[in-house]
């Protein structure tokens, strides 16, 4: 390590340093420096500082020197060089510059953070928009369900072609499907007389072949609108429908005689449950045949004049057999929820 440079001015104290009366700090430093016969550049050379810093200290222009920590350092060293009391010089600096003991608060700049937040919010807005559109679409999805529309079209066209082979089942679940209500069904013309024992003749029926379980819409335009279709749509390929087509339920004698086209005297309904289900069944006369909670793996056999007004609390767990023919579940199981209200009548052959 090298030693200090040779000094051009001797700062050895010859006499006691003059006390600072009330004069400014810079004037005090200047007075002591001139007492040693030194120039500013001599002091700057001794301290290894820029002469401009010495000038700023002697003119009390502390703002030019930056943060107080640096000014205190300069003053401390200058005071030691001039053999002045260091603490007194620093105290004078504090009083004069108004520098408090507490440093200024720290600052953290975060300009980019806010932009990022706005972008995040924009993404959230788009997400909500897409979710809203999706929810709306789901709300109207039932109206656009192709299977329902197919069934609707099929039923309507068959009604137009053969009003006597009226649909037997109507369903109106709590989801407000555009099904035909039982009252409208009752106003339809009676079926043509047919032998009760004769098997259905698919060849005599128009295309498509009649399905034993057909749903008709309650919406008037749909009910009345379809004219006889030149090329009627095929019946929906639902399992229940196919089974019923292969072996349709024979019509009751009452219907055969045309006494009451809308009631099925002595229809037998078997209810089977794979889970707990509340059930209520009323016959055509409004008599409550059952209104109770059915337990898992239980069954109930009912008979009475049809059609039956049925309410199922847990429709997916119920299996309905009308006169020995299982009823297609798609007819009465709702798309959402489990509660189903519908009217079940014996199909016309």
């Amino acid at each position: 390590m090298s030693m200090s440079n040779e000094m051009s001015t001797d700062f050895t104290p010859s006499t006691e340093a003059p006390e600072a009366a009330n004069e400014p700090l810079g004037a005090w430093l200047t007075q002591v420096r001139t007492g040693y016969g030194a120039e500013q550049r001599d002091v700057a050379h001794h301290l290894g500082l820029n002469p401009a810093i010495i000038q700023a200290l002697e003119t009390d222009d502390f703002a030019r020197l930056g943060a107080p920590v640096f000014v205190r350092g300069y003053l401390s060293r200058y005071a030691r060089l001039l053999n002045l009391p260091e603490q007194a010089v620093l105290e004078r600096y504090r009083q004069q510059s108004g520098v408090s003991q507490a440093p200024p608060p720290l600052q953290v700049a975060r300009p980019l953070r806010r932009q990022t937040r706005i972008r995040d919010l924009r993404g959230l807005f788009y997400l909500l928009l897409v979710a809203g559109i999706g929810w709306t679409a789901i709300q109207h999805l039932d109206d656009l369900d192709p299977s329902r529309l197919t069934a609707l079209w099929s039923g309507a066209s068959r009604n137009g072609d053969q009003p006597t082979a009226t649909t037997a089942v109507t369903a109106a679940t709590q989801t407000q499907y555009p099904f035909q209500p039982a009252s409208e069904l009752a106003n339809q013309p009676a079926a043509a007389p047919e032998s009760p024992t004769s098997a259905p003749q698919p060849a005599t029926l128009p295309s498509p072949p009649p399905a034993p379980v057909v749903v008709t819409s309650t919406a008037p335009p749909v009910q009345n609108a379809p004219p006889p279709a030149p090329e009627p749509m095929p019946a929906p390929s639902l399992p229940g429908v196919q089974a019923a087509t292969a072996a349709p339920i024979p019509s009751s004698p009452t219907e055969e005689n045309g006494d009451n086209a809308t009631t099925d005297a002595g229809a037998k309904l078997l209810l089977e449950f794979s889970g707990d289900c509340w059930v209520e069944v009323k016959d055509a006369e409004g008599k409550v045949l059952i209104s109770s909670l059915m337990r898992t793996d239980s069954s109930k056999s009912l008979s009475g004049p049809g059609p039956f007004a049925i309410t199922l609390g847990n429709a997916p767990a119920a299996r309905l057999i009308l006169d020995g023919q299982p009823v297609d579940k798609t007819v009465y199981v709702p798309r959402r929820g489990t509660v189903s209200r519908f009217t079940l009548a014996r199909p016309q052959p």
Partner: peptide
């Protein structure tokens, strides 16, 4: 250090507690 580097060297006020005080200022923030 000044002699070896040729730079101005400043001793901070109360250097023993600088680290703790600096940490304290950060905590305040």
């Amino acid at each position: 250090i000044m002699e070896e580097t040729g730079l101005n060297v400043v001793v901070a006020e109360d250097p023993l507690t600088c680290v703790a005080r600096g940490g304290g200022r950060v905590l305040e923030l």
